[in-house]
Write a protein that binds this DNA or RNA. Structure first.
Lengths: 329, 329
DNA sequence: CGTTTTCCGGAAAACGTTTTCTTAAAGCTT
DNA sequence: AAGCTTTAAGAAAACGTTTTCCGGAAAACG
């Protein structure tokens, strides 16, 4: 392996000079810089990030921590979108992302988590879908040992940023648009997780609209599960005018139930996942750009790691209507 | 940061001794080991993998290189399954996996790729879906600079292993079962990619069955695209008895076309992705356990990195019939 | 022209491990 | 008990960088 030492010899300078060229330090003359760069290309030198990290004590490594149910029957495309968005941006920024799943650290206590991430030389965390019940993970963030960016959860201190769409507004808007022009008054609202941040915000948005329009809203918790939403729909839909769900997956569950019951009720979703293309119905929903959210999370983490202070980032959302895709009957 | 040095002082031994304990070397007495371990827990010492990697010149880092179309309208769940399987196994083995997408390295030439992976201190590659046309990536593997495991592509030398199901047999079997008891003789076979390894193998299987049963098979290339399969079905299905596709996604496309044409033809798929749960039809297909395949790839890479010789691994497959899920009409 | 300042480049320590080599002690063998 | 082998533990070099500090030369100044 060709090292900085070889480059120095080739260029006839000291290794510190090479390092300075490599890192764009000031105080190195143009000619020296050229000599060094020539030597670098001549030798095909590739800086060793490991050595660099050891010496500088900066690894540029971050962990993308995601809640993925590895045995779910249905695929959740959101984690994949996060991964794509984060990794691409990380490459651009010269950062290094490792992906970690909740399940991999689920049984760890805080100290073990800290140890795990420290041994991996992780400096920052991007956490998707942290809920109030993820005690250890939450404590990990609060420990202040790592800079963190929380997707869809509120930040905790100056080392932590938060990034999410305006869920309250989005739910308000999509439900409003969905109900606009209809006579629906009795609504079944299938909420997400109890104690989930986004779920609570969306519920607030729903309630605000209900107050405004004088709707009767029955709220039930669907736990972001297709099956649960299906059961709830079975149970309550007959006496309701419409069903509004806090996620598209639950909306699919609701639709399936309606078909089973052989009744029609309009259904409103949330997320805009492309999976919906298979649902076969046109449906109002909220589109989040998950790749962009993850990319922004990486940018934000990078800012945090350079000493920036934690903040709250609101990402844009879109109201869309998923088109009927001539799907299988 | 508490270092091995601190542990050594605390335990009253030399740092080399601590290192030996850490790495389970022989020639260290039980009492010393206990003293050291006590010091480690007392101080909450976490070994620094960066330093360890620098010193030992073993990083245990591998790249999982995947072909993901980041702008695809439909989600392909397979990459996610690979990621989950690989990362979980990697943690188990103390390896370190970074995920890389084809798009990120697409415009690089071989040397740039080598440089990129070397600078990342990558020692091994797991590549999913390498095709004959990925020239640079292929040369990268052939360069011998990295140990590689190729999923769904043949190995090239002793540094490379290959892992895949028996595609030829699987296609033969599923088509046979699919046609069993029917009078279908004129088949539209929608193949995958031209020059794709798995596609060619599957086609061989299909042809073998055709010979055996005296089928008339029209072969067309669908490029693993839903849209393409849909077009081909439109074009040819009317004069055929059944449609056999080299992937589930294409099978969905075929089904959509049949609905548009308002004719019925049985359709056979391949892959067993859970997305099919939304397709609304019962369908014969081949189930691959992608998580398990990726996990085995990691194991195999680990073996390779320890000096093992490249080999060909055949993974099991299952013939399944995806159930009708009372889906949306 | 002497003094101060600025600018370059080099020497060397440090980062936290691993690993080789050495030495001291202890255990055998005869 | 002398010589031999085995075993345990330590000393120190090495891994490839970064970064601080220092010295000399050139430039600026009065």
């Amino acid at each position: 392996m060709v090292s900085i030492r070889d480059v120095a010899k080739e260029a006839g300078v000291a290794i510190s000079t090479v390092s300075k060229v490599l890192n764009d330090y000031p105080n190195v003359s143009k000619e020296t810089k050229e000599k060094v760069n020539a030597a670098i290309t001549a030798l095909g030198f590739v800086p060793n990030t490991i050595a660099s990290a050891l010496s500088s004590k900066k690894t540029g490594r971050a962990a993308l921590v995601l809640d993925v149910n590895r045995h779910a029957q249905t695929v959740d495309e959101i984690p994949m979108q996060y991964i794509i968005g984060a990794i691409n941006k990380a490459k651009e920024k010269g950062m290094d992302i490792i992906t970690v799943f909740f399940t991999m650290i689920a049984e760890m206590n805080v100290d073990e988590m800290i140890r795990y991430f420290q041994s991996q030389s992780i400096e920052g965390l991007i956490i998707g879908g942290l809920s109030k019940e993820d005690i250890s993970l939450r404590k990990l963030v609060e420990s202040g040992k790592f800079k963190s960016v929380l997707i869809d959860a509120p930040g905790v201190d100056e080392n932590t940023s938060s990034i999410h769409i305006d869920n309250e507004k989005a739910q308000y808007e999509v439900a409003r648009k969905f109900l606009n022009g209809t006579v629906c008054r009795k609504i079944l609202y299938i909420s997400g997780k109890k104690n989930g941040y986004v779920s609570e915000e969306r519920l607030v948005g729903m309630n605000r609209l209900a107050d405004e329009l004088g709707l009767q809203v029955l709220v039930r918790t669907g736990n972001f599960s297709e099956l649960e939403a299906r059961k709830l729909t079975m149970q309550y839909a007959a006496s309701k005018d419409a069903i509004i769900c806090a996620s598209d997956l639950m909306a699919i569950g609701a639709m399936k139930a309606l078909i089973d019951m052989d009744i029609y009720r309009p259904v409103c979703g949330f997320d805009g996942v492309s999976l919906m293309g298979y649902a076969g119905k046109q449906m109002h929903t909220v589109r989040q750009d998950f790749q962009n959210i993850a990319a922004s999370a990486v940018e934000e983490l990078s800012r945090l790691m350079e000493g920036g202070c934690g903040q709250d980032l609101i990402m844009p959302h879109k109201l869309i209507r998923i088109k009927y895709l001539d799907v299988l009957s």
